[in-house]
């Protein structure tokens, strides 16, 4: 089976661009399809979130199939929160047969932070064990030690939070994920390029592609909120000031400019192997962010 086009892009040495979509809560998939159409030809891969923030939605695998059908390259986000090891393996087998070749392995958010706070959190496996499981399935065995009749092949990745505090436990986990077989890493949102450059100095020693996480800022308020409430995110004051200084109704454009500028700097300074752009709810401006970064596909 041919390599995934995302994997080819990673291996080509080019600056790789991925973005992400969130499936709907409900059966109206039109907005999601619209976002897929907007993104599929301008990025190297589209992540589909898996009940992000523990909020029940249309499944990640369904979003990935829609991307496939429309000629895009899906990256299946898979958390360990809702499925035990049997269900995870089964979904991986199914995904492979439908042409889904890229998987981002996540532990998953805690259940109580979501919209079904009394549900059972599964966490039978964690992200590093899920990565190992993918490598095992590829070798033709399942976790029970049985032979598979036909085995999958994936480009598997994971995440890291470069701004985590304390950083050491986070890095120990990061190294375990690479050890377990992660080929690419998409980072949590980064805003301070100096801090990120320091992280990259460390990360460069590992044989793994690093894609910097870019989360679109839409207002100074959002930036402050994220600083106070989102683990591992640090938006420096100068960016908050820049957003606050935007004339009324212009904050979004300022956010697009900031994101575009960061992508451009990361690329020009060759700081990392690519970027993962998250425009949470504002997917339609991803093309504008890429234009602001001077990137055309």
């Amino acid at each position: 089976m041919a390599k995934s086009s995302f994997k080819e892009a990673l291996e080509s040495g080019k600056f790789v661009i991925t973005s992400e979509i969130g499936p709907p809560k409900g059966t109206n998939i039109e907005p999601m399809l619209h976002h897929i159409d907007l993104l599929k030809d301008i990025v190297d891969g589209i992540n589909v979130t898996d009940h992000q923030s523990s909020v029940m939605r249309f499944p990640s695998i369904g979003g990935c199939l829609a991307i496939k059908e429309r000629g895009g390259e899906p990256i299946l986000q898979m958390t360990c929160r809702d499925r035990n090891r049997m269900a995870l393996q089964a979904d991986l087998l199914y995904a492979y047969t439908r042409g889904i070749r890229n998987v981002l392995c996540l532990t998953g958010d805690a259940v109580p932070v979501g919209d079904h706070p009394t549900a059972k959190g599964v966490f039978d496996l964690d992200s590093s064990q899920l990565l190992q499981t993918i490598r095992l399935l590829e070798s033709g065995k399942d976790m029970g030690g049985n032979d598979l009749n036909g085995s999958p092949e994936f480009c598997a990745g994971a995440i890291v939070t470069p701004e985590a505090n304390p950083i050491e436990p986070q890095l120990a986990k990061f190294e375990k994920k690479i050890e377990a077989g992660a080929e690419f890493i998409q980072t949590q949102a980064i805003y301070d390029l100096e801090n990120f450059a320091k992280f990259m100095e460390y990360a460069r020693q590992f044989n793994v592609k690093i894609m910097a996480g870019i989360v679109l800022l839409v207002s100074a308020r959002m930036a402050k909120f994220m600083n106070n409430n989102v683990p591992g995110i640090f938006v420096p004051d100068h960016l908050i000031d820049e957003l606050a200084a935007a004339p009324k109704g212009e904050a979004l454009n300022t956010g697009i400019r900031i994101a575009g500028r960061m992508v451009k700097q990361l690329k020009e300074q060759n700081l990392c192997d690519g970027v993962h752009i998250m425009a949470i709810g504002k997917e339609e401006v991803v093309p504008d962010i890429l234009a602001a970064a001077g990137i055309q596909k």
């Binding site: 996540l106 805690a110 109580p112 964690d126 436990p169 986990k173």
Partner: peptide
């Protein structure tokens, strides 16, 4: 909170757990 054994999840913040800022990670 998640009974993980291989290290922290992405939700840990300032040494605290993502489900409750009062509880240690």
């Amino acid at each position: 909170h998640k009974g993980l054994v291989n290290g922290p999840c992405g939700g840990t913040s300032n040494g605290k757990c993502e489900v409750d800022k009062e509880r240690d990670c």
